[in-house]
Design a protein around this nucleic acid. Structure first.
Ligand code: MN
Ligand code: MN
Ligand code: ZN
Ligand code: ZN
Lengths: 140, 140
DNA sequence: TCTCAATTTAGAATAATTCTAGACTACCTT
DNA sequence: AAGGTAGTCTAGAATTATTCTAAATTGAGA
C-alpha cells in the first residue's frame, strides 16, 4: 500500500498534497476538497473561486490560480485549453478524451477504450509524444 | 467549373472573397494574399498584423481581427485554440489533424489519412458532431 | 454620380491571467 | 516550546489578447 486510505477507501486530501510535496495549507486543503470531493470535473479558475466563496472559504483569486497551477505541475490536475476564452482544469489525469459541447462550452470525458486509434504518424525528428488528445466537437 | 482559375491554376483572392460574399476591400485583399499566397499556414492575429506592417500594408489590428473572424465565418479559415495564450487561424480547412510542439507553440498538419480511427463513441443525446480534432502534443 | 450599408479604425474597454512585494504561516531545528 | 526561514498568501497593479464604440471612409448598385 503506497498511500493511506480512509475507511471509505479514498486517499485523503491531506495525503494527496503531502505525497505531491505541496504544503497542506488551509487554502490548498479547501480547494483540493472542492476539486476532488467526488467524481471527475472540468473546472475554470473563476468557477472554483466562486465555489469557494459560496462555501465561505476565504481565498483570493490569485491563490486559486496558484493552487491550480501547482496542482497541475504536480500532476494532480491537467490543464485543457479548447476555448480561447479561458482554460479548464481536469481532475481526471488518466488517459482519456473529450466531447466538447460548443454551445455551452462544457467538456465531458470519453473513456480511453471508447476511442480506438488504428494508425498515428510518428512526430518528425523522432521527438517524444507527451499526449494525444481527441476532441469530438459537438453542435450542442 | 465553379470558379475561375488563373493560368497557374489557382483561384484568385478576388474570386475567393466574392465567392464567400465578402466585399473585396483593399484590406481584405491584402490580408487574404498574405494568408493564401502559398501553402497552408497556422497564424495568429498578431503575426498576420506584423506581416502586413512589414510589407507596408496599412491595416489596423482591429481589421485583422475582423478579417480573420469574417474569413472563419465564411469557411475560408478555421480557428484553433490549443494554447490559451492566443488562437491560431488555419488556412487548411479540409479534414486534417495536428502536431503541437509544446516548446515553440508551433502547429504542423497531419493529413487526414495518416490518422485512422477505428472506434469513436456517439455523442450523448444523438447530437451532431461538427468535427473531430486529433492533437499529438510533442515535447519539442 | 448619388446613396447607403458594409467596412475600417483609433482608442477605449474588457476579461483572463500574471506579477509584485509585503504579510503570514507551516514546519524544521534547537 | 520558541525561533528561524522558506514557502505561501494576498490586495491590488499590471499585462495581454481580444472586443467594442462610434465616427469616418468606401465599395457597389441605382
Ligand atoms: Mn496557465
Ligand atoms: Mn475568436
Ligand atoms: Zn476530462
Ligand atoms: Zn492545420
Amino acid at each position: 500500500m503506497r498511500q493511506k486510505k480512509t475507511s471509505a477507501g479514498h486517499v485523503t486530501v491531506l495525503e494527496r498534497l503531502r505525497a505531491a510535496g505541496l504544503r497542506p495549507t488551509r487554502q490548498r486543503m479547501a480547494l483540493a476538497k472542492l476539486l476532488f470531493a467526488r467524481g471527475h470535473r472540468h473546472v475554470s479558475a473563476e468557477q472554483l473561486f466562486n465555489e469557494a466563496k459560496a462555501q465561505r472559504v476565504d481565498v483570493s483569486l490569485a491563490t486559486v490560480y496558484n493552487a491550480l497551477h501547482d496542482f497541475t505541475a504536480k500532476d494532480l490536475l491537467r490543464e485543457i485549453s479548447i476555448d480561447s476564452s479561458s482554460s479548464y482544469f481536469d481532475t481526471n489525469i488518466g488517459n482519456h478524451h473529450h466531447f466538447y459541447f460548443e454551445r455551452s462550452g462544457r467538456l465531458e470525458d470519453i473513456a480511453d477504450d471508447q476511442v480506438q486509434i488504428a494508425a498515428l504518424p510518428e512526430p518528425p525528428g523522432g521527438a517524444e509524444v507527451s499526449r494525444v488528445d481527441v476532441i469530438i466537437r459537438v453542435k450542442a
